[in-house]
Design a protein around this nucleic acid. Sequence first.
DNA 1: TGAGTCACG
DNA 2: ACGTACGTGACTCAC
Length: 885
Amino acid sequence: MAEKIMLIDGNSIINRAFYGVPLLTNAEGRYTNAVYGFFNILFKLLDEDQPDYLAVAFDMHAPTFRHKTFDGYKGTRKGMPEELREQMPLLKEVLTAMHIPIYEQEGYEADDILGSLSKKAEDAGLIPVVVSGDRDLLQIAGETLKVRIPKTKGGRTETEDYYAKDVMEKYGVTPLEFIDVKALMGDASDNIPGVPSIGEKTAVKIIQQYHDIENAIAHAAEIKPKKASENLTEFQEQARLSKYLATIIRDMPLELDLSKMTTADIFTPEAYELIKRLEFKSMFSRFEQKTTQTEAVETAFAHITTATEAKNFFENLEQKETAYILLVDDGAWKGMSVCQNAGEGVFLEITEELPPQTLADFAKDFFTTKDMVKIGHDVKRDIHTVAPFGVEEIHASFDTALAAYLLNPTGNSYEYDDLARDFLEEVYPSAEEVLGKGRSKQPLESLPEGERVAFAARQAEVAFRSKQIMAEKIKENEQEELFYEVEMPLLYVLADMERWGMKVDRQALLAYQKQLGESIETITKEIYELSGEEFNLNSPKQLGVILFEKMGLKGGKKTKTGYSTAADVLEKLKNDAPIVEKILYYRQLAKLKSTYADGLLAVMDEKTDKIYSTFNQTITATGRISSTEPNLQNIPVRLELGRELRRVFVPSSEEFCFLDADYSQIELRVLAHIARDETLIDAFRHQQDIHRLTASQVFHVPFDEVTPLQRSNAKAVNFGIVYGIGSFSLSQDLGITRKEAEQYIAAYFTKYPKIKEYQERMIKEATEQGYVSTIFHRRRAMPELQSGNFVQRSFGERVAMNMPIQGSAADIIKIAMVKVHRALKEGGFRSRLILQVHDELLIETALEEKEAVAKILKENMEQAVALSVPLDVDVHEGQNWLDAK
DNA sequence: TGAGTCACG
DNA sequence: ACGTACGTGACTCAC
């Protein structure tokens, strides 16, 4: 096998890394995010490709031959942001410490260096892998030369890989023709002019037919879009210049010194020191393994593919702590892996000799028994996976996904590779990396047996070892009660809710949809009439042009792409033109139809007329749950027209009705409790109208003389306090001046000094400890407060003030859900919890159980926890969700 | 795929 | 002086 060499465009990769990773600083206060992102990408690529040689190329500041040819070259480029610029020397420092050669040459760009080095390497019989964030490099992709384009998205790195054939497949032209395409279409980011009116589509079509620009120019007359044809002749010199600029040099006089490029000794102690200083914890293990002589854990994986073996396996399974993982691919159950000891794992794969029903039958006792301590990963999903095969219950005592979320709720995902990275400091390819994604995704069974077994079994092995570490951390954080008594039991509550679903009156929803459709048609015509032309009303861009250019309404530019046409902007223009109100009405109708009427009909089950939402327990930064496909937590209620939609949500049979219970002012009560504000606590104890009270305090009027406007303004102030108020936003919200808003806030803090103290305490705590927490010890890390950036730090401060409130409220309703669910089960009721909307629970109850269940609901919610203020719950009943509010 | 918009607590 | 309230998810357009 030929040796491999990896060549990296340092500038473009660090750029990608900078924008893909949120700003980070180390203890010294240096920005480190781009360097961190760079090495994340580098290590991932090294793992995947295992090259023998490695080098990194950089652009130099000096002008290149391209600038000398064309003044405008890269003329539109903005300079690097300061936060990135100062990381460049740091990157080079680490590379040098790792003995990775750095190539830069005056007058050339990194692209040219990569082009030339890769050519030399190829000539020398090596296999080159070229890495860049820029698609320009695609022109050098070859039969053996692979171009890799990494992307960092939310902390994860994905790469697109291109050989010559992939370029052909994706763009329909050869790599060399790619240059000609670019010469025609131009490149705004490099300020390569191209030919006017030829965009990507046309450029590709032309080059597919004529292969290069000279031939195309010669046949310009035959080219189809008339504009393109004319411009191609008129701007032919510009096209030639563009091609010259776009062509990567492949014959620079450079030396390919392989002896300096070897990857054998890059994990040097000097580099490790730097990595430690930069606090790149997830990378420590790589350096430790190489710098000290620690031995890697020996792993042994086994494969079971027949019924006999599977039967045997479960019969002889030791009664001890066990991690299991269910493998699901495209919704189909593919098998399960099991781990009882570090370094070991068994993959029971679903095959013709071991069909899913058989595996389920053998595994049923394992899933069900309470005598065995079982560790699962996303047990809620597992429950749905095996339920169709008659496994009614999975008794797990530790869910590693839930644990990972609890330990760091701001993570992007909690897959096995995330656990390995965060808790074991080991790096494994993600499922996406193993199986691919999108159209190039391959099924699990297409992997060679060894890889398939390792991939599957490793997941259980990682879960097994991670659990030990996570359990320790949960204990250290005093989160055991929250985890074992709230999050774990809640998973079963949510599983039941998901499985039961919510019934919809299909006929009523169809009627609602039809009515919306008709109203939309009418209002659309009226709007076209008033504007004098037809346009796409759903396009904010087109709408902006009509409103602010054609009709001359005054509206400041607000968004980066043009005029803002958001509701709050239009609201202010209502009196200037009658069209505005109609547009707002259109928006309301369009939203209701597309998202709610059409959207819900699309996800309704044909047979049951039910909607089965998914309740995510590991998404939010504050501890709330979220609802997807569909989102049942944002069904309209504020406006009458939308509110009507709630009539279509009905109990699943005639024998049932809805009970809806919601906490009154839960966040303000939580605030009163944590801030220990006597005035607020007292008000809640005496069941006072809290907004009226705030109004009387802020506006200095007697309680009984508060006007409706004062009360509603005070309500906004109360909300604002919970979010970490600012005078600007409050003034926007209330339509008052900033001065006035400032006065409101000042008055508020004078009357409620403990609230001010609470906010300051949270910011201090967040700064000192690096996290804030809820009453029940849920934590959120707050790196934003370390930021030198005013905007980010201010954001961090508001988060620090808000999270304990929103999070504690989330804890409370979760506790209530577990209690209510348990009470219903133990009482043998037919009633079921079907939905949670942050401060509200919806139950469908058998008519004869109604009174008993209403009591259970109210009591368990109000008594969920004991705070210094009472919790108050309103319960309503109805035959549909609207009537039950 | 990101931006804009808007639905909810 | 900075940009401008916390937490979500779905749909649509346009690059």
